[in-house]
């Protein structure tokens, strides 16, 4: 079976077959949108970040090194954009208790998730933005510790520790959330 890998698709984009960007968008838009949304809780900002990610994929296509995998490259572009966005809003954002339940899954879809998942997302909302970001990179984007380390500008070991500690904090927060 002929499978057009992400790497081949990006080569085509670099050669000027821009419509192929649509295929990459199809492959990654849902994941990236949910990544942005689960960290920011902001639907409009997530939209903007998603569009900006693909604009940058096109803009910086020539900086892609063929020896690298495309998937982490794309996630790195998205993560960097999100990091910039979080820096901008970190001084003004404060998540109110009423907003807390909206992290991850919209209230109208609560029937689709278990009670434990609902409590987990409430606990996620209580994490610091940077912790929520790193946990979401880990479980949703399934970024390796190497990729997280590169994006966060920390060592691989430190990336693993940060993920572990954020998850342990989630575990502790879960105890405080009533069933």
């Amino acid at each position: 079976m002929t499978v057009l890998t992400d790497e081949l698709l990006l080569q085509k984009i670099i050669r000027g077959e821009t419509q192929v960007l649509g295929v990459l968008y199809k492959r990654y838009s849902t994941l990236l949108f949910n990544y942005f949304y689960r960290v920011t809780k902001d639907y409009n900002a997530s939209n903007d970040l998603l569009m900006e990610t693909f604009a940058r994929i096109h803009k910086y296509r020539h900086s892609y090194k063929p020896s690298r995998k495309v998937r982490p490259w794309i996630f790195q572009i998205g993560s960097n954009l999100l990091k910039d966005h979080l820096k901008k809003i970190s001084k003004t954002i404060s998540i109110h208790e009423s907003d807390v339940q909206q992290i991850g899954v919209q209230p109208d879809r609560y029937s689709e998730i278990s009670d434990r998942q609902r409590r987990t997302q409430q606990a996620m909302a209580r994490l610091k933005l940077s912790e929520r970001n790193i946990v979401t990179q880990y479980y949703l984007l399934e970024m390796s510790y190497e990729a997280i380390a590169e994006t966060e500008n920390i060592t691989v070991n430190n990336a693993r520790i940060k993920v572990c500690r954020a998850l342990k904090k989630l575990k502790a927060l879960l105890k405080d959330i009533k069933t």
């Binding site: 960007l21 968008y25 569009m51 693909f54 899954v105 987990t120 997302q121 946990v135 479980y139 989630l170």
Partner: peptide
């Protein structure tokens, strides 16, 4: 267990307006 619960949460759909914007961009 926490990671499993997070991974199995339903994903939100990308708004169709964004799909359209990307198509227009391309």
């Amino acid at each position: 267990q926490i990671v499993y619960d997070l991974k199995s949460m339903p994903l939100e759909k990308v708004p169709t307006t964004t799909d359209k914007s990307i198509n227009d961009f391309i």
